[in-house]
Write a protein that binds this DNA or RNA. Structure first.
Lengths: 67, 67
DNA sequence: TGATTATATAATGCACACATTACATATAGA
DNA sequence: TCTATATGTAATGTGTGCATTATATAATCA
């Protein structure tokens, strides 16, 4: 399961750094998530990412995203 | 984030035990996930649950489910 | 009566999400 | 020059997903 965070940020004209500040996660962990180096995620953080990016889990997951 | 696994299983007329067998997870962990006692999940298992239940992450998460 | 289905809890250990701290590079603006 | 933006990596420790093993109850079926 790959996360489309890069694409969504590009669509919104926002940077990773911006999302990092909004989220409040450690940058280390944040960077691993965004660059798809993690094998799972806390629901709390998944929800926060969706809230901030104004999207749903299906939009985030490459496998379920429908343009 | 609450998972709607109970509802989806009911709709499909399947039992938790059936899903447990399909998934191949330990029953302990499986039971915690299904009964919403976990704070996160591995992408691999999220994908497997969606595949078996023939649904998407948005269908699974109560916060994003639209009937 | 015994096996399978069905569901649940507890103890122990490993793998990994996540936090914290630190270090590093590069650009842009005050 | 100093600060903030922007991105990345490494080391160490805590919390927790998940596996394994065990125990328990109850219904259904051979």
């Amino acid at each position: 399961m790959k996360l489309r965070i890069h694409e969504i940020l590009k669509e919104k004209g926002k940077t990773k750094y911006w999302l990092y500040i909004q989220l409040g996660l450690s940058y280390q962990n944040f960077n691993n998530i965004v660059n798809n180096r993690t094998k799972g995620i806390k629901f709390e953080n998944l929800k926060a990412i969706c809230d901030i990016l104004e999207c749903t889990p299906n939009d985030l997951f490459e496998e379920y995203y429908k343009k």
